[in-house]
């Protein structure tokens, strides 16, 4: 329930995804982070059947918010619902149809390091793995601008050269938004990027 930063971690040359994850986990453990269970973030995308209005709807399930589901439209509107969202959408099948290969998830180990929560996940689409997602959360703070310096410092420790230079665009655009929403939006962006990357490949 804190400020969260989500990004893709590029695997160093000559290593596969598993080795990359292990490297990152080692780094986190060396810092002193403690293993604290598993996490999963699932994303399922839907497209509208209306030909004129070709929009995409992403639904996110984050294990950090087990009672909630998030729905994000491409135009930026965002919805927080309870667990019945999936059933509800299946009833609206005539309007929203699941995209082919629309299911993508990030799964992995969750670490706690003082007030920080580090999540290192492998992004996979069905059977194929797409990359490594890193999530850093600073639990006590709710205002991204206030703790960004602290988080950057932490990120430098974790992923020294891949640390972001500035505030991510999603957070910068709406710094006052709900933190869960910001997390979900960052994940959607990450998943979209990974999807595109795999398409291009």
């Amino acid at each position: 329930m804190g400020v969260t930063y989500v990004s893709q971690w590029n695997i160093p040359e000559g290593k596969n995804i598993q080795q990359g994850v292990e490297e990152l986990q080692n780094k986190a453990e060396k810092l002193g982070a403690k293993k604290c269970g598993l996490f999963v973030v699932e994303c399922e995308s839907f497209h509208s059947t209306n030909a004129q209005n070709l929009k995409t709807l992403h639904t996110i399930h984050n294990s950090e918010y087990p009672a909630s589901r998030f729905a994000c439209f491409e135009d930026g509107s965002f919805l927080v619902t309870d667990v019945m969202l999936g059933t509800f959408l299946s009833k609206l099948r005539s309007v929203w149809q699941p995209k082919k290969g629309g299911k993508i998830e990030s799964k992995g180990q969750r670490y706690e390091f003082g007030d920080f929560i580090i999540k290192i996940g492998i992004v996979s689409m069905g059977p194929s793995t797409k990359g490594i997602a890193l999530e850093l959360e600073y639990a006590p703070c709710r205002f991204p601008l206030d703790c960004w310096e602290l988080m950057t410092e932490m990120l430098h420790e974790l992923i020294d050269d891949q640390a972001p230079a500035s505030l991510p665009q999603v957070i910068a655009q709406k710094p006052d938004a709900n933190l869960a929403e910001l997390t979900a939006l960052q994940y959607i962006r990450l998943f979209n990027n990974l999807r595109k990357a795999s398409m291009n490949r």
């Binding site: 918010y65 009672a67 909630s68 927080v80 309870d82 667990v83």
Partner: peptide, 15 residues
């Protein structure tokens, strides 16, 4: 309270 928890949204720790 529990019903509102899902749309607040509440984290697992809060729950």
């Amino acid at each position: 309270e529990m019903r509102h928890a899902s749309i607040q949204p509440w984290s697992s720790m809060q729950l």
